[in-house]
Computed example of a mutant assay.
Amino acid sequence: MASRYIEYFGDPDISYLRDALARASINIVPQSLLVKPLLDGRTAATVEKLITNNENYVLKRTSKDNWLPAAAECPGEGPLWVSGSLNQERLPRLLRCPIIDAIYHPPTEAWWLLMHDVSDGIVPRGNFGEAEAITLWSAIAELHAAYWNDEKQLADLPVASLSKTVSAFAEPIYGALTQEFRTPWAENVTQEFMPLRVLLPIFLDLISPADADFFLSIIKDRSWHNELDHSSATFLHGDLRRANISFQNDATILFDWELATKGPAACDLQWNNFLTFWAYTPEDGKEAWERDHLKDHYLNEVEKALGANIDRKEFERTWGLAWVSVISQLGFVFADANLDDQGTRSAIQKRIEVAFQKCRDALGA
């Protein structure tokens, strides 16, 4: 069921919080409120912890100056919540969204998203391993199955197109590499998006000239993406990184849906695969590329949820192309490591070499 679109002109004070909880049918009336800024997330939004005498909450206020929604041409989390797509009645049994209430604040042209505080279920960096991935991929398989090739449901989702979300990351990288900006917003992003500005030069220093040329080629000419655009599609979270995932009791809780889109399921999985096992590898004695059983687990789970077999040949093809897509957008994140340690540097360079070979294999290059 869709939620009502509500405009609010006040401040994020206790009156706002009481009204939001009442709209969500939460029978709690806070008597005190302390607002504490949260500064450790990689988001352009203002995120604050609301500490009350009862429970704690998180308030995320989107910025009208955030480059990502404009670049991806995506409506954002607020409209997605209002559409009802993230309500518990619409999500599968293993999945939760922590948003309680969403309102639009005209004075700042921002959406305010009030959420349960689920920070205690976020796994610290380095500790998110195969067990957590299996839990996540089981839950996301249920979401994917609920929308699998369902054209009507997918058409009703207020989300960006997959190609636009890819462009939002790839075009600034292309501009930074060539100083040729093919979109009006890309140059600003190269200055405003700190991870790209800091990590891209380090990444280029890590890779061979041949890999640098190949990296530029898959960003410059993204005709390889056409097949992803025309393959079996489903509802994608779009940003399955560790910091957007919380585990509480038997539920997998996903937040930060601003990159939500629709496309092949492999795009969600490869995004998480890259960030979990390639860019930030857990210390479990296994190499990043020794995780194929996770894909097999997902395929079994999604077919069980669908009650039918999927086209596994098509899935394998999109699996390879989704890897190319992730590397074209996030490859520079390989540089987010302690490269002063020679052992770490050598291990990352080996992973980069294998990652680019996987791209070449997918493209038949």
Rank of each mutant, 00 (worst) to 15 (best):
F9R: 12
S15H: 15
D19L: 09
L21D: 02
R23M: 08
R23H: 08
A24G: 09
I28D: 05
S32E: 09
L33Y: 00
L34I: 14
L39V: 11
L39E: 13
L39G: 13
A45E: 06
I51H: 03
D65S: 14
D65F: 12
L68K: 09
P69W: 00
A71T: 03
A72T: 04
C74K: 04
P75M: 12
E77C: 03
P79V: 09
W81A: 06
V82H: 00
S85I: 05
D101Q: 08
I103T: 15
I103G: 07
I103E: 08
Y104W: 13
P107N: 10
E109S: 13
W111F: 10
L113Y: 01
H116A: 08
H116P: 00
S119R: 13
D120C: 10
G121R: 02
R125P: 01
N127H: 14
A131D: 13
E132V: 06
E132Q: 15
I134R: 15
W137T: 03
S138H: 12
A141Q: 01
H144S: 08
A146T: 12
Y147D: 06
Y147I: 08
N149P: 07
E151P: 08
K152M: 12
L154P: 09
L157W: 03
A160P: 00
S167R: 11
Y174N: 05
E180G: 04
E180Q: 14
P184I: 02
P195C: 10
L196V: 04
L199R: 07
L200S: 03
P201W: 04
L204R: 03
I207F: 02
A210G: 09
D211I: 04
L216P: 10
I218N: 02
I219A: 04
I219E: 02
W224P: 03
L228K: 04
H230C: 11
A233G: 02
A233S: 15
T234E: 08
F235D: 03
L236D: 01
L236H: 01
R242E: 08
A243W: 03
F255S: 02
G263S: 07
W271E: 05
W271Q: 09
N272D: 13
N273H: 15
N273K: 07
L275S: 11
P282V: 01
E283C: 09
D284S: 04
A288G: 15
W289H: 14
E290V: 01
E290H: 12
D292M: 10
H293R: 13
K295Q: 13
H297N: 11
H297Y: 11
R312W: 01
F315M: 06
W323S: 07
V324D: 09
I327K: 00
A335H: 06
A337P: 00
N338R: 06
D340M: 09
I348D: 00
K350C: 10
E353T: 15
E353Q: 11
G364A: 02
G364R: 02
A365K: 12
A365T: 12
